[in-house]
Structures are given as structure tokens and as C-alpha cells.
Design a protein around this nucleic acid. Structure first.
Lengths: 258, 258
DNA sequence: AAGTGGTCTAGACCACTAT
DNA sequence: TAGTGGTCTAGACCACTTT
């Protein structure tokens, strides 16, 4: 479990090069990897306190500063949250801070609010080839399909279809979804132990077809934003495919480039 | 020029509280601010080498570690680029790395390429109220207006209108623009000393109107991505307003959420 | 008062780049 | 060989939170 035996301390010996493994990586990166493993394995669950820097330093036999640098990066990547005086916690989708991290559609004028949610359909099916490919599964494996409409102040604005690996989201029922208030990612996290770390999106402009026009209560041909998202957990494992159609009459997709 | 006189060293005195100014901020943040000022003022220009960590530590009378942490953050914000063995350089839009930082439209299949550029129009005019507001200028001040079409493999894909503060972009002519090959931001930087640090975008779906349909060679009513961008230099000063209309038949806008 | 993360320092060695 | 940034350590004090 120990990291490289290559401290730079009293410079005693000739730093045994382990022959054929030129795997160089800074100590703090190795520590970061070990901590990430513990996050993946569920040793520390979302919302929980992880051991203090001093404890981790003792466990891994490195200095506190090295652990600190590892945790600094994990914190920058939103995997953990540091709180002065309290400790370091595993990141959660339940906190107010991260409520809007993955919801980029904002009203043209005014404050963000959380949308009302109407489930249209939930069913299990065998993954179509395209879905399987994107979720890195085998075609034909079980997936949960979900279709819903989200409204802001009563105005239907987002029509979304989701595909989720059936193996992970076993007991996902329409009742469960309707009971739950708040972000879907928070539900996924607390009920299924799946924490979305990052996501990538492909955005296009399209025209509303008949079905979607009905559900969003707009005219056929209305221009919509098509947002295809793949979300990943620890270890870059794809665990969600979403296709959202956003009505951008009174909202826009906001993005910060930096 | 010195930062706070509040070292934590031999703990000599009672840390004179300067009465009514409870301006707390970490030393390294103050150093970061001072370095940023030097970047703004043009003391070090894009592409240039800034003083070494040791020199800066001496100049500001702090330890190298403190300077390092300041520069670490500037590096994370893409204001400077560190190169081991060489030094730290002011960030540039000329480097390959940052060529596509602000160009998020990518082909559905295949590699990114830099588009061909066709200038439709360049003129100076008095800023309309809306433009002035977004660029934080007074209405009626001089702005440069620019309209262009960008094509990928001969297919017109982006129709863009730009508004730039006239005071900054004095000698911007259509010849200058046509001569220049490569990203427009690189031109802005080398010719006008304006480096874009960050930008924010508002994205909507719209239908092509007659003029734009002509220029993009598509049918009227074709759905397009409308991307409104405001770009900022040092000190969050707005220096560019852009409205792009993107054809997303063979391309998509790619975004990473993290 | 004790424990946590946050800041700051000082000094060591390493890896890379230039001369 | 000298200078740069990159890593690692050790120890100090601070600000915040809880007991």
C-alpha cells in the first residue's frame, strides 16, 4: 500500500531503482490516487467526513503537506469539500452549492429556481446499440429508460430522456421518482450510491417534432436546444445518458469559458 | 507596496490592528494581486518571461513558497504558463494549447481544424444602447462592428457579428483582418495588446432569417445555435461582444461539466 | 482546550533547460 | 554548471468549530 520508497530525506542510500518499472509520479499524486480509490470503493460515502490530514499522513507515511496537496486537487475537482475547523467531506449533490452545477439553463431575467418535475414514462428495456455504445455496455443489456418534462413557473421548458444502466439502478420506479423532491442526481446518490463526478455535453439546435411539440406545448418547428449528456462516476465510468430538449424562449444555456 | 506587516514569525508583538480596516486576506492572495497588477499594466507582456519565483520573493519580501502559491493560482486561471527549467511566462492566445479554448464548435466526426474566414463587413459606429450596456461603455461611444462567415472544408458554418470598443481597437481595418491568418484573439493580442482572459456565453436555439440563411447558404427557418459572448480582460473589463450563429448539422457545441 | 483545515516559512533534493 | 520550476518535508502560528 505504501507509495514509492523514494523519500528525499536524509539522503541515505542510492534510491533503489526498481529495475524495469519507470513509473514516475509525484508522491502527492499517488496519495491522491489512493484517496480516490477509497472514494470509489465506498469506504467513505458522500457527505461523510474523511480522516484528517494528520491521520492520512500517518496512514500513508508521508508528511501532512503532501496529503494536503493531494486533497487540494481533489477539492479543486469537486470530489471533496474542505471545511475549516471541521474536516474534509466527500462531495454531495445535496448541497446548495452544487444544486446547479449540472443545470445550465437559467431564466433570461431573474433568479434561478428549481423546476417542477413531471414523469412521463419509466420502463426497463434492452439497450439499443447506440445507447450501449455511449454507456460502454453490451448491446441488449438492461437499461432503465426515463422520460420527463420539467417546468419553470408552470411553463414546460425541458423535455428529457434518460438511459441508465439497469445493473446499477435496480429499484428505480415511477413512485420513487415522484416522491422525491429535489435534484435527480441527489436521488441517484442517496438511493443508488452513484455520484456523478463530471459530464460532457454535445449541444445542437433542432426543430420540435410533433411529439415533443405536444409535450412542451409549443408549435411544431419551434427551435430547441438539443443537449446530449454523458455523465461519469469515479474512474471515468459512464453511468448516465441524457438527451434534453430545452425551450429557449425565456431561458438560455449559460456557459463560462476560462 | 509591501503586503501586510503581519508575518507569523517569532511572534513578537501584538500585531497592531490598524483600527478600522479589517481587510483580511492571505499573503499569497495579496501577492497574486500585485502580480496581476503587473500583468494588467503591461509590465510583462503576453509571451514574455516574468521574474523567477526567487526574484519575486525578494521583491515582495516573502518566502518563495508564498510566491509559488500565488503563481499556482494564476497558472490554474490560465493567466500564466509555467515551464520547468525555463521560467514562468505570460499566457498567450498564440500557443497551440489555447487555440481552441474559446472555439467550442467541433465536427461530429473527426479532428478539429481551423476554419476559413470571410469578412463581410467592418465599420465604425456609435454604440447602440444595448451594446454599450453589455460592454460597460456609454451609449454613443465609438465601437468597431465586424461581420464575418467562417467555413469548415468550404461549408459556411458560423456567422458572427462582433462589437469592439473603438478606443482600444483603433486601427482595425478589413485589410489587417484579411492579411492575418489564425485565431482572431491572437491578432487582438499582438496588434492591440488586448488579452482575453475569460468569457461568458448565453446560448439559445433560433431559426435562420432571410439574411443569415443567405450567408450560411441554408434554407430559411433552419435551426441555428445563437451564442452571445462577452469577453473580459484583466480586471474583469469587458472588451468584446460577439453574437455567433452556428450551423449544427455536422458540428456540435461541446462542453465539459465538472 | 483540543482538533481541524489555512497560511507561512525555510530548507532540501529532483528534473529540466540553457550555456 | 547554474538557474528554473516541481516535489517533499517539518514546524510554526492562525482562524474556525466543537467539546
Amino acid at each position: 500500500m505504501q507509495p514509492n520508497e523514494s523519500k528525499s530525506l536524509p539522503a541515505s542510500d542510492t534510491d533503489s531503482y526498481s529495475s524495469a518499472a519507470p513509473t514516475f509520479s509525484p508522491l502527492y499524486q499517488q496519495i491522491k490516487g489512493l484517496i480516490t480509490q477509497s472514494l470509489q470503493s465506498g469506504e467513505w460515502k458522500p457527505g461523510e467526513l474523511i480522516p484528517s490530514e494528520i491521520e492520512l499522513a500517518a496512514r500513508f507515511k508521508v508528511s501532512q503537506g503532501t496529503v494536503r496537496k493531494a486533497i487540494d486537487e481533489l477539492s479543486a475537482e469537486n470530489l471533496v469539500v474542505r471545511r475549516q475547523g471541521k474536516g474534509t467531506f466527500v462531495a454531495t449533490h445535496h448541497e446548495a452549492r452544487s444544486q446547479f452545477r449540472f443545470l445550465r439553463l437559467v431564466p433570461d431575467n431573474g433568479e434561478r429556481s428549481y423546476p417542477e418535475n413531471k414523469i412521463i414514462e419509466v420502463k426497463r428495456l434492452r439497450a439499443p446499440a447506440e445507447v450501449a455504445r455511449l454507456l460502454e455496455m453490451k448491446a441488449g443489456e438492461s437499461v432503465v429508460f426515463l422520460k420527463r418534462v420539467q417546468s419553470f413557473s408552470g411553463v414546460p421548458t425541458i423535455l428529457e430522456e434518460l438511459w441508465l444502466p439497469g445493473s446499477i439502478f435496480k429499484g428505480l420506479t415511477i413512485e420513487r421518482l415522484n416522491e422525491y423532491k429535489g435534484p435527480m442526481y441527489a436521488l441517484f446518490e442517496s438511493e443508488f450510491g452513484t455520484h456523478m463526478i463530471r459530464a460532457q455535453e454535445e449541444i445542437r439546435a433542432i426543430c420540435a417534432e410533433e411529439d415533443t411539440a405536444d409535450l412542451l406545448q409549443v408549435a411544431i418547428g419551434t427551435p430547441l436546444l438539443s443537449v446530449e449528456r454523458i455523465s461519469f462516476t469515479y474512474g471515468d465510468k459512464a453511468v448516465e445518458l441524457r438527451r434534453g430538449l430545452y425551450l429557449t424562449n425565456a431561458h438560455h444555456y449559460r456557459n463560462e469559458l476560462s
